[in-house]
């Protein structure tokens, strides 16, 4: 006896849109997925605005001290909170509740959820950066980067690097709680060494060097270069690209759908 003939029809655009919509509704209706990545960077932005001396002084033509130090940190924070804390906790929750397993018995693969999550979190990144920019422009007279296209390229590289780190967190965390704990520690670790609590130049030399080899520090340095129209150092690109590659590699080996 031969098998039945089935013409395979993979889930199409409608399925993708429904899944992205579903992930977006999960984030919006849960609030936490919005409050932290949108609210925390704003608080840090205001704190930086308070603590930076002579923030109106120009470092390059049309670029103030505030824009150079605060905005690269805040943009990197928005990306990092979403990619390193939020996304892994969603994936860990889905794994624990067997939602991914449920999808594995439909024509949609669990990988579709992962991609839909990334699309939704990228939209969050854009919203978060837009909100931070709006506040920075309105209240602190911030400037756009002199090399706008380079800044956009750095943003994409930063997203890739942070998602790579996020996938490592999602791969090693056994539970949703541990995912949040590991994500928070990883986030504050790389952010503290990358200048979130004050300019990285104020750190001891060794910590400054370590910070520059981590994705947050590399992202901040790369954004700063784009802001004043300078060439982004090769080391920054290597760190951002390397983080993405290492994250993808670790996830390929360790990530479990269930």
């Amino acid at each position: 006896m031969s098998a039945v003939t089935v013409k395979v029809r993979k889930p199409g655009l409608k399925a993708w849109l429904r899944l992205i919509q579903a992930e977006a509704k999960m984030v919006i209706r849960d609030y936490a997925g919005l409050i932290v990545p949108l609210g925390l960077p704003l608080l840090i932005l205001v704190m930086q605005g308070i603590s930076i001396d002579e923030m109106d002084q120009e470092l390059a033509e049309g670029v103030t001290v505030f824009s150079y130090y605060a905005l690269p940190v805040v943009i990197s924070m928005v990306v990092a909170t979403i990619a390193v804390i939020n996304m892994p906790s969603f994936l860990a929750t889905y794994r624990k509740t067997k939602l991914l397993r449920r999808l594995a018995v439909t024509p949609a693969s669990p990988a579709m959820v992962l991609i839909a999550q990334m699309v939704v979190s990228f939209i969050q990144v854009i919203l978060g950066i837009g909100l931070a920019f709006a506040v920075a422009l309105l209240f602190f007279g911030a400037d756009l980067p002199l090399s706008l296209w380079v800044a956009l390229a750095v943003l994409l590289a930063t997203c890739a690097a942070m998602y790579g780190l996020g996938m490592i967190v999602a791969s090693v965390a056994p539970t949703p709680n541990s995912s949040v704990a590991i994500g928070l520690v990883a986030f504050f670790g790389i952010a503290a060494l990358g200048g979130m609590f004050g300019p990285a130049d104020n750190l001891p030399d060794t910590l400054q060097t370590i910070g520059a080899w981590l994705p947050f520090g590399a992202a901040v340095e790369a954004f700063q270069a784009a802001w004043v129209g300078e060439t982004v150092e090769a080391q920054n690109w290597v760190v951002l690209g390397g983080s993405a590659v290492v994250g993808a590699g670790v996830a390929a080996v360790l990530f479990r759908w269930e």
């Binding site: 098998a3 089935v6 993979k10 579903a22 509704k25 999960m26 067997k98 449920r102 018995v105 024509p107």
Partner: peptide
């Protein structure tokens, strides 16, 4: 034949969760 089987098979799993906010 995973892709083909997924189209002709329906499964209700024991204690499987769905998107809770939907």
């Amino acid at each position: 034949d995973r892709a083909k089987v997924r189209q002709i098979l329906g499964v209700q799993l024991q204690q499987a969760y769905l998107h809770g906010s939907l």
